[in-house]
Amino acid sequence: MITTGAKFYFGLGFLLLVAAVLYGWTSGGVDWGLFPGHLGDLYFEMLGALTLGYKGAVGDHLGFGVLLGGAAASTTIGSFMVAFRDADDKPLAEVAGLPTAPPLQLVSSSNVWATIGAFAVAVIAVGIATSGWFVIAGAVLLAIATLEWAMYAWADRATGDAAVNASLRNKIMNPIEVPLFGAIVAAFIALSISRLFLTVPKVSATWLFLGIATLIFVTAIALAAAPRVPKAATRGLLVIAAIAVLAIGIAGAVAGPREFHNEDEEFTVEGTGGPKDLYVYGQVPTTTAAVQEKSGHSEKKGE
């Protein structure tokens, strides 16, 4: 028996196939003068469309191809509808060996990976139009989102108990997520803070480093010493810290690094020694002798 859904998709497929033949034939131009006396010749004109271009030509290839593609797609879906009996309850239950087919299950977890996946696609879209770096960043994010999404999809249906499902997921993913997340946070902090240190003068950077370290130390002691800290306060503190680090990073990147040339020149001219005087800004590191030779050579040139 052909089911209702299959009737629609087979009907659509048949309609598009007939349309393809009609369009392939008529869009090439029809000599209606052959009607009715020379039907054989008229049929010969149709042969290209009837044989899908195998014996003879069709008119507009694009339209013909699109109609055939539509016919193939809808016929394929129609075949699935027949095979699965329109996914009606009774045949499904029979196949599953159950009295009735079970309804769809609600997903048991709330997670943002579908949203992050969509955001990753948006980043890729921006990258395709502007810079390859965005494409790479978006693709990495999309890969992570896909993995997480797949794990949630599996865990949501692992057992009938949502708590067990969550525990199963965490057992598998936490060993990957925690170090990865830690590395990302460390990289984020290092990158942002380093922008600040590269921007401010050298001496200030030293004091700033000490100041930040002290602040973190004192805050940690205060948190540890407090008898009870509300979760919301800790979260709020972390969010403020993350925003501050991000702001510092952005501000540092916008301001750009300080001028290193003067520092190095000063260091070398004064000859305070140490390994740093081996470095001449803008050149590959070399030996002290080579630097001296280079400097002597230029003096000679100057003479």
Partner: peptide, 10 residues
């Protein structure tokens, strides 16, 4: 196509 309840054919 696939999530209809018992008895609800297309």
């Amino acid at each position: 196509a696939t999530a209809r309840t018992r008895g609800m054919s297309l």
